[in-house]
Structure formats: structure tokens, C-alpha cells
Design a protein around this nucleic acid. Structure first.
Length: 866
RNA sequence: GCGGACGUGGUGGAAUUGGUAGACACGUCAGAUUUAGGUUCUGAUGGUUAACACUGUGGGGGUUCGAGUCCCUCCGUCCGCACCA
């Protein structure tokens, strides 16, 4: 009966479903609120309910679930919630395409995706599930908006939108394709509209400096956020104008001031507009600039162009007058919208000066250049900061950095300069001219202007009886919804019809998950939030490195300022997983092909099944419908089971790296699940069971291989535990396989030592359970263990078994491996040397030569130098 | 252009952080089982070689008894930012 190879098919579909239902029915993963255990909050970025779970989700949530299960077993009270980022444009697109109401579409998708997610056996606390389009959630968001408004975080200003002149509606960026409206195909225009903004810039300093403290974040993400916030330190300088028009410029290189040969202002600069009224060539330039600037792609590659305004400004320290240009490369949005140009030490200024024949005068001499020769053989451009100042009056001879300080001090003293910090970060525009979003709780009163609602006027619910027949925002042409009264004067007023950017919804959802009482209306109970925040492990894609993660950091700070919560940083540790990729196939005309349309030829290239024409095999690309390289999780689950899929998406490739899908790899994981099953059945047949788990054996008296296995097992516990702690999930799988292979190697001894193997199998099940929970739960119950392995504790290793007494020591001669010897780790140096010299392979080289040096590193190596 | 990461078998990747390179898989090959295919079990598998041996972590150089790991340099790939003064 005890034959491992006997046919014991694993009926994964029945067993997986059985445990999924059991866990759900018994609330097996409801959050532990006893307060007796330390907390651990593990969160995966929540899902947009597009209707279909894709493999990328599976990988993301599998990583999270493994961590959640591991931490739960390791004695933590784990909060592992699930929810839906449910507002957004695709729901409205569906309404346009199929006439289905966005709400209906959204909740239908959530229901469908929930089924898919449940089929993967994730250990969620489903009692905390919500969607951001739930009335309770967005109503509370309106409350937060009003509180932030009271604190001065919210304001309104004119801002550009994409305007479709045919459909006469605002388009989201993703609805603009090649500069044209996605439906009408009309050229999209930029149009100014008054819109709502959140002052994220209030926290620019904190958001930047706190990045240093986020040690649990990938360096890459921190760098990206830091660049996005984009701090630069410098100095603003006022150039006095002859015509009374002073120009304030910003520079990070004030020390190059003596090399200035022109001043340039942005075409959007106020002065440019003013000069255009008097100067036809400026007017013409501005007009052309506006024409050309519509498309951003053109902007990017644009050559530097400018126009001389005819006016001049005075150099602060020299009797020189500098010409003032309007130049297309000067940004209005950055600094003061004006610069001084130092062609010898700035690439852009150099290009510009060369084009318009402006003087190029050197003020920094390269170290060792010893005079005023041009650096790097003729080119006058040097943008480095090594070297010393020349041609610069009182700065001459100073280092660049000394000169910088000296000139800033001087400029400050004479009252025309000041130290400044500028940031690239802009305020966050949150208005969307859309229906399916959180209504902005503001009204427009003809008498009082724009008025914020009071808390008692909340919630402002979305009307359900809307029509998508007209273009534009349905809230705008709803018959009654818009009309209300002004909370200040009581007069008839209209509601704001813009809704909030969905990034607002996702900026505080992790706080909502902390609320213990799902019936509560207080979605930010300070006590609950204190109990769970910050998120201990956040997991999601690198694509959210900037926007979502920065907004969430900002929101947490803003809500602290508004005294809702007392946390500064929401995510203690961040893990960014790689994308799931797959090969792509294309015809020679570029058309994408499904893998099943393609056949491999004998020669190794590929051809189209239908016609036999050659097929181009593309490189691995992120799975996407358009490239026809997607796989459907549902199909995989029904063919191979959830455990095999979970195992596969974390196998082989480190989770932070892109994952190459392969059908063979998946099959390998499926085979491993079956191999596990055969092992469990074999053990059961051999009488291995829970009741025999007693350490009633003497390790010394066991057969060598069984004793060795038992000791090695403690090594596996350590290796797997460490790999889980470090998120090296690919290694967790590799070590798990090694461990199973090791047990397979001792099957002949199982019957004789059921007690030893009962302990080994018990811990093996525990160790594998986070990755393949269904089969482990089944084995746990099958072998008579009580309770659930999912709620059991993590095995601990015994340090004494990790200490090895004898090892196989490598022997080198001149750093080259020549053999190895078995020694006792405690053997004295001389004994080891003697034994090592006894090796024939060592003698072959050493014989007749003088040994100059003998290296011995205990437990590591022996090296003879001859 | 600037910034960051990386480069190991046919493939994905290991390597206790300076100490036996290639763990664990995928693939391939062979043997056993099977009517056969599949599954399963066992073994082999960096390259050259009949073998001894030699060689091998993108190229070149260096430090060291010893380098995939540290330093310099060149090349290549990927990612981010991009007229940010």
C-alpha cells in the first residue's frame, strides 16, 4: 500500500472549493480584536472593478496573502482587508456603449470579480469590504473635503482642460488619442475652466524631507517622488529695467552672474503680454508660440526660439545693459518665469546665444586650466562646478561654491536678491467634469458666490436618474439635482457639478479599513486608526510610485492637520511587484496574434497556423488584451487549481521583478502540487498522524539519514522563515521544493519512524500553507490535526540542530580549488592542514615546492600558496 | 541630456555578502514503469575533452592568499525624469 507512485489523483477543484467555503462560512480570517497580539496591517492596492481579474492582480494579491498568512501564523493580529476603487471613467464609457447605468455596471463587476478573487483562497477579512462608490464612503469623503476647505487646503482657479469642440465636452487625458477626441475624432483644444484644487504644496517640504525616513520603501520610489517634488535651492535677483519694467529672475547658479549676456522671460510671463501690445514682433512671436504649443509632443522637441523685445535691463554689478528676450524654453510655471542667460555655463543658454549671436563670456576656469583658455578644446561651454571664478570682479579666485555664497550675500545686502527654494510640485487639480465620481459639496449662489455646504447639508448623493444621451456631464443637464439653496442666504443656488478625481477616493481608503464597527458612521474613528495605522506592508505596482502614493501621503498629513487622525506617514513598508509578461506574436504587417494562432516550425521559427506565413516573435511584454498575450486566471484555476497558480506567480522570479509567464512553468507547479499530495497520501497510508507528534525519540539512535533529515528540517524552517521575512518568495518556493525532495529521499524509513515523520510532516504543512493553503488545509485535517493550519502557529527551529559538527571543507592551492576533505569543525588548524596536504590532487601541485603561506578560515576554506 | 537599476548555463534564477559558481525549477537527454501517449520514479545536463585537465559570472585593468561579489574603465540592456534655469 505504501507506494509513492501509486495513482492518487488530487481533486483540486473539489478540495479548493470546500476550503474556500469553509473559511468564508466560519469567518476564518476575520480580524483579531482581542488586543493580545501585536498588530500587523497588510494591504494590497485595491482593485478597480473593470469586470475581470487579470494575472497581474493575482500576483499582487498572492504576495499580500502569503505575507498575511505568514504573519498571522507568526503571532500577529493581522488586518488584511479587501475593497474596490469603484468610481471612474470606464463605468461611464460602459453606459455610453451599452446603455447600462454606471452604478449597476460597477456593482455587477464587483460581484463578478469577488467570485474570481474568492476562487484564489485569499485570507481576507470580508466583513470590512466596501467600494468607494458606496454612499457612506463618499458622503464621508465630502465631510473630509469640507474640513480641508475650512483649513484652507481647497481653492478654485482657472485651469486648462481638454475640450472636444464637436461633442462640446471635457475629455480626460486618456480620452485624447493623438491629439484627437476618442469619439468625435476632432482636434482637441485647450480651454480654461474654473476648477477645484487641493494645496498639496502646503506640505511640499514635509513630503520631501520625510522620504528619508521611509526606509521600508524601495529607493527607486523615493527617488522618483523626490524628483517629482523637485526642490531646487537658489536665488532670485531683481534686474532693474530702463523702461521701469523690473524683471525678477530665479537661478541656481548666481555665481555665474558676471557671465550673463541676456535676460529671457517666458511667453506666458505678464511682461510678455504687456510688451506684445506695443511691439508687433513680440505679439507675432506669442501668437506663433500659442499655435505651436497645443501639442505637447511638439513642445518636447522644439528648438530654442526667442524674440528680442527691444527693452534692456541693467546688470546689478556691471555697467552693462542686457537685452531682454521672450524665449520659448523659459517655463512660466517654474521659478519666476524669467532667467538670466549665461551661455558659457549653461547648455540651453549656450544654444540660445549661439543662435542669436549673443556674447559668450567665461567666468569659471577649470581646475588646472591655468588661465583663460577655453576649456575642453574650443567649446566655451562648461556646466560643472569645479574650478575657480574668473572675470568676475569680487568673486575672482573663489571656488564656485564660495562664490555662490558670497554673491548671494552681496545681493541680499544691497536688497536686490534673496535666497529662494523652488519646487516643481504643483497643486492637485481634483475637478472632473464627470458623473461617476464623488460630488463636490459646493454651491454657486448668485449673491454669495461659491459657497461651501455645511456638514448638516451632507451627503450630496449622486442622482440615479441620469441620461447619457447628451454629451458632457449628465449632472449638468439633470432637471432637478443641480438646483438647491444657498446655505448662507437661502436664495436659489446651483450645485457644483464637477466630481472629485478618483485619486481622492484612494487617498484615504486604507484608513477606512481600520474601522472595526462596519455599521458606524464615523469612518475615521481615531481609536481604531490608532490601533492599526500605519500600514505595515503595502503592496502594489510601481506605476503608482508618484501619484497615488504621494496623494495618500499628503492626505494622511492633511487629515492629521484637520485633527481627524494622528499619523503622518501611511505606509511603513512598501513593496512594488513586477509586471506579469508574456511573449507576443505578430504578423509581418504588425497585427498581433494569439498564441493559439501560431505554430512552431521544425527550424525553430514560428508560422501562422492558418496560412503558414512567418510570424515575428516579439519580446516579453506586459500582458494586455491589445497585444493578445493575456491569460485568463479563471481558465488557469479550472485547469490547474488556485494553489498551482498561486505557487507559479511567485516561483522562480523575485517578486519585485517582471515575471515571464510560461505554460511549462505553470505545469511544473501543478506537478509539484500533485507531488505534495502524493506525499501526504503516502504518509497517511504509512500511519503518520497528529497523535504521533511527540519527541519521544533520541536523535542519536535514529538511522543516519533519518536523523540527518530531522536536523535538516530545522534548517529548512529557518531558511523559509528568513526568506518570507525578506520577501524572497521565489526562494520560499525553492526551499520548499528542496524540503519535499529531502523527505522523498527517506520514504523507506517512514513506517519505522512514524513519530519523527509525523513531526516533519506537521511542520512541512505549516511551512507550505501560506503559499498553497488549500492542499495544506486538506492535509492538515486528513492527518488528524485539530483546528485549521491557517490559524495555527508557525514552526520554530531549534538552534542546536543548525550547528554542524562535520563539514566538507574545500581545499585550494593558489586560490584554485583542488579538492575537499571531511573535517570536524573543531579540528585544530594543523590537523586540517595535514589532512589537506594528504590529498593527491594537492600533492600533484605542491610536491617539491615551498609552501609560502597557508590560509585557514575555520568552516570555510583552506588555501596553500606556493 | 540628467538620474537610477542591472548584466551569471538553452531559459527563469541561487550563491550564507570576499571563501567549493550554477541551489531550486523550466527545457533537453537517458533508464525504469506503462499496450501506447501522458503521469510517475531514478539519473545526467555551463563550455571544450575519450580522459586527465583546461576554461567559465558583458569586455579590459586593478586590489587580495582568494573576486559573480570590492575599486577603475569601457560596452550593453531596462526604468524614471526631461528645456526645472
Amino acid at each position: 500500500m505504501c507506494d509513492i507512485s501509486e495513482n492518487t489523483p488530487y481533486n483540486f477543484s473539489v478540495i479548493e472549493q470546500k476550503w474556500q467555503e469553509f473559511w468564508l462560512k466560519n469567518n476564518s480570517f476575520v480580524t483579531d480584536l482581542s488586543g493580545k497580539k501585536p498588530k500587523y496591517y497588510v494591504l494590497e492596492m485595491f482593485m478597480y472593478p473593470s469586470g475581470k481579474v487579470h494575472i497581474g492582480h493575482v500576483r499582487n494579491y498572492t504576495i499580500g496573502d502569503i505575507i498575511a498568512r505568514f504573519k498571522r501564523a507568526s503571532g500577529y493580529a493581522v488586518l488584511h482587508p479587501v475593497g474596490w476603487d469603484a468610481f471612474g471613467l470606464p463605468a461611464e464609457n460602459a453606459a455610453l456603449a451599452h446603455g447600462e447605468h454606471p452604478k449597476k455596471w460597477t456593482y455587477k463587476n464587483i460581484a463578478a470579480m469577488k467570485e474570481q478573487i474568492r476562487a484564489l483562497g485569499f485570507s481576507y477579512d470580508w466583513s470590512r469590504e466596501f467600494a468607494t462608490c458606496d454612499e457612506k464612503y463618499y458622503a464621508f469623503q465630502q465631510k473630509l473635503f469640507l474640513a480641508m476647505h475650512k483649513r484652507g487646503f481647497i481653492y478654485r482657479k482657472n485651469s486648462e482642460v481638454n475640450w472636444d469642440p464637436v461633442d462640446s465636452c471635457v475629455l480626460a487625458n486618456e480620452q485624447v488619442i493623438d491629439g484627437k477626441g476618442w469619439r468625435s475624432g476632432a482636434m482637441v483644444e485647450k480651454k480654461m475652466l474654473p476648477q477645484w484644487f487641493i494645496k498639496i504644496t502646503n506640505f511640499k517640504k514635509e513630503l520631501l524631507s520625510a522620504l528619508d525616513g521611509l526606509e521600508g520603501w524601495p529607493e527607486k520610489v523615493r527617488v522618483m517622488q523626490s524628483n517629482w517634488i523637485g526642490k531646487s535651492e537658489g536665488c532670485s535677483i531683481k534686474f532693474s529695467g530702463d523702461s521701469g519694467d523690473d524683471i525678477l529672475v530665479f537661478t541656481t547658479r548666481p555665481e555665474t552672474l558676471f557671465g550673463a549676456s541676456f535676460v529671457a522671460i517666458s511667453p506666458h510671463h505678464d511682461l510678455a503680454e504687456k510688451l506684445a501690445t506695443k511691439n508687433p514682433s513680440v505679439a507675432k512671436f506669442l501668437e506663433e508660440f500659442k499655435k505651436g504649443s497645443i501639442s505637447e509632443e511638439i513642445m518636447e522637441k522644439q528648438e530654442k526660439l526667442g524674440v528680442n523685445t527691444g527693452i534692456t535691463v541693467n546688470h546689478p554689478f556691471l555697467p552693462t545693459k542686457l537685452p531682454v528676450y521672450v524665449a520659448n524654453f523659459v517655463l512660466k510655471e517654474y521659478g519666476t518665469g524669467a532667467i538670466f542667460g549665461t551661455p558659457a555655463h549653461d547648455e540651453r543658454d549656450y544654444d540660445f546665444a549661439t543662435k542669436y549671436g549673443l556674447p559668450i563670456s567665461q567666468v569659471i576656469d577649470l581646475p588646472g586650466n591655468g588661465g583663460n583658455d577655453t576649456p575642453d578644446g574650443g567649446s566655451l561651454l562648461y556646466t560643472g562646478i569645479d574650478g575657480s571664478m574668473v572675470n568676475s570682479d569680487f568673486l575672482n579666485g573663489m571656488s564656485v561654491l564660495d562664490a555662490r555664497n558670497a554673491i548671494i550675500e552681496k545681493l541680499c545686502n544691497i536688497g536686490i536678491g534673496s535666497r529662494e527654494e523652488f519646487y516643481k510640485l504643483r497643486d492637485w487639480g481634483v475637478s472632473r467634469q464627470r458623473y461617476w465620481g464623488c460630488p463636490i459639496p459646493m454651491v454657486h449662489c448668485p449673491k454669495c458666490g461659491v459657497v461651501a455646504l455645511e456638514e448638516k447639508n451632507l451627503p450630496v448623493l449622486l442622482p440615479e436618474d441620469v441620461s447619457f444621451e447628451k454629451t458632457g456631464n449628465p449632472l449638468d443637464h439633470h432637471i432637478t439635482w443641480k438646483h438647491t439653496v444657498c446655505p448662507l442666504c437661502g436664495a436659489a443656488a446651483t450645485r457644483e457639478t464637477d466630481t472629485l478625481d478618483t485619486f481622492v477616493d484612494s487617498s484615504w481608503y486604507f484608513l477606512r479599513f481600520c474601522i472595526n464597527d462596519s455599521e458606524s458612521d464615523d469612518l475615521l474613528s481615531a481609536e481604531d486608526i490608532k490601533q492599526w495605522m500605519p500600514v505595515d506592508q503595502y503592496i502594489g505596482g510601481i506605476e503608482h510610485a508618484i501619484l497615488h502614493l504621494l496623494y495618500a501621503r499628503f492626505f494622511t498629513r492633511a487629515l492629521s492637520t484637520c485633527e481627524f487622525i494622528d499619523v503622518q506617514e501611511p505606509f511603513e513598508n512598501l513593496f512594488t511587484q513586477g509586471m506579469v509578461c508574456n511573449v507576443t506574436y505578430r504578423r509581418e504587417n504588425g497585427e498581433w496574434l494569439f498564441p493559439e494562432q501560431v505554430r512552431r516550425r521544425e527550424s525553430g521559427d514560428f508560422e501562422l497556423l492558418e496560412t503558414g506565413e512567418p510570424v515575428i516573435v516579439g519580446r516579453l511584454e506586459k500582458m494586455s488584451k491589445s497585444k493578445k498575450n493575456v491569460v485568463d486566471p479563471d481558465v488557469i484555476i479550472s485547469n490547474y487549481g488556485a494553489d498551482a497558480l498561486r505557487l507559479f506567480v511567485i516561483s522562480d522570479t523575485p517578486p519585485e521583478k517582471d515575471f515571464p509567464w510560461s505554460d511549462e512553468g505553470l505545469e511544473g507547479c501543478w506537478r509539484f502540487v500533485n507531488r505534495l499530495w502524493r506525499l501526504f497520501v503516502f504518509m497517511q497510508n504509512c500511519g503518520v498522524e497528529a497523535q504521533k507528534c511527540a519527541i519521544d525519540f533520541n536523535l542519536e539512535q535514529l538511522p543516519a539519514n533519518v536523523g540527518e533529515l530531522y536536523k535538516n528540517f530545522h534548517g529548512f524552517i529557518k531558511k523559509i522563515t528568513d526568506a518570507l521575512e525578506n520577501r524572497h518568495l521565489n526562494k520560499v518556493v525553492a526551499f520548499g521544493r528542496e524540503m519535499v525532495n529531502a523527505v522523498y529521499g527517506c520514504l523507506d524509513d517512514v513506517k519505522g519512524y512514524r513519530n519523527v515523520f509525523s513531526i516533519i510532516i506537521r511542520d512541512l504543512i505549516k511551512l507550505m500553507a501560506p503559499v498553497v493553503p488549500h492542499i495544506c488545509e486538506e492535509a492538515w485535517s486528513m492527518l488528524g490535526f485539530t483546528g485549521l493550519v491557517s490559524s495555527g502557529d508557525w514552526p520554530v527551529y531549534d538552534q542546536q540542530y543548525l550547528i554542524v559538527s562535520t563539514i566538507n571543507l574545500p581545499i585550494q592551492v593558489n586560490g584554485k580549488l583542488r579538492g575537499s576533505i571531511d573535517v570536524d569543525v573543531d579540528d585544530p588548524e594543523e590537523v586540517v592542514f595535514e589532512k589537506a596536504l594528504g590529498l593527491q590532487s594537492v600533492q600533484n601541485i605542491v610536491a617539491g615546492k615551498v609552501i609560502k603561506d597557508k590560509i585557514f578560515v575555520r568552516g570555510r576554506i583552506v588555501n596553500f600558496v606556493v
